[in-house]
C-alpha cells in the first residue's frame, strides 16, 4: 500500500516538476522583450534604438588620450616598447634642450601597429605615467593594411605639465 501511494505521488510530483520547467520556457516564448540577442549591423546606427556600445573594460585598440590643450602624458621612456611581446609599439624620441639648458627627451612619434597587436594590455598596465589607454572601438577592418599603422600622438602635441 505504501509503495502504491508513493507510485501515485511520484506521478503527480513528476508532472508538477515538468510543468515548472515548461512554465519557464513558455514565459520566455511569450515575452519578446526577454530576447538578449543583438543584431549587429542593425544595432549600430538604427534610429530609435540604443547604439551599440562596448563596456568600459573592453580592449578595442590602444590610444593615447589627449587633453583639450593637445597635451599627452607620454615621456617617451620606452617601457611600453620593451614590454610589448609582439614588437607592436615603436617609440621615436627626440632630444630637446629645455629652458634651463638641460637636455630633455621628448616624444616624437609613438607608432602603434594594430595588425600585430594581441591586446594583452602589457603596455597600458606598465606605463608609469598612464599615458596609454584602451578605446572601445572594435570595427578595425580597413581596405589598406597601411591604415593599421597608427601614430598615437597627435601632431603638434606636447607633454602635459608636471609629468617627468
Amino acid at each position: 500500500m505504501k509503495s502504491f501511494i508513493k507510485y501515485i505521488s511520484d506521478i503527480f510530483s513528476g508532472v508538477a516538476s515538468l510543468l515548472k520547467g515548461m512554465r519557464v520556457t513558455g514565459k520566455y516564448f511569450f515575452s519578446p522583450r526577454a530576447i538578449v540577442t543583438q543584431q549587429y549591423p542593425e544595432n549600430r546606427h538604427k534610429k530609435g534604438k540604443k547604439k551599440l556600445e562596448m563596456f568600459d573594460r573592453f580592449k578595442g585598440e590602444v590610444i593615447m588620450p589627449h587633453s583639450e590643450n593637445n597635451q599627452h602624458k607620454c615621456t617617451a621612456c620606452g617601457i611600453c616598447e620593451n614590454n610589448c611581446p609582439n614588437g607592436t609599439i615603436e617609440v621615436i624620441s627626440v632630444m630637446n634642450i629645455g629652458e634651463d639648458g638641460k637636455k630633455k627627451r621628448a616624444l616624437d612619434k609613438h607608432i602603434y601597429r594594430l595588425s600585430m597587436c594581441s591586446f594583452c594590455a602589457l603596455c597600458v598596465k606598465t606605463c608609469p605615467s598612464k599615458a596609454l589607454a584602451f578605446s572601445q572601438e572594435f570595427e578595425h577592418a580597413v581596405f589598406d593594411r597601411k591604415k593599421l599603422i597608427k601614430i598615437l600622438n597627435k601632431p603638434g602635441s606636447t607633454l602635459m605639465k608636471g609629468i617627468e
Binding site: F29, I35, T37
Partner: peptide, 13 residues
Amino acid sequence: KVCAFMQNRIGPN
C-alpha cells in the same frame, strides 16, 4: 523560430 524564442534568441532573420 520557436526554439530561438524559448532560448531568448531571435532565430533565422
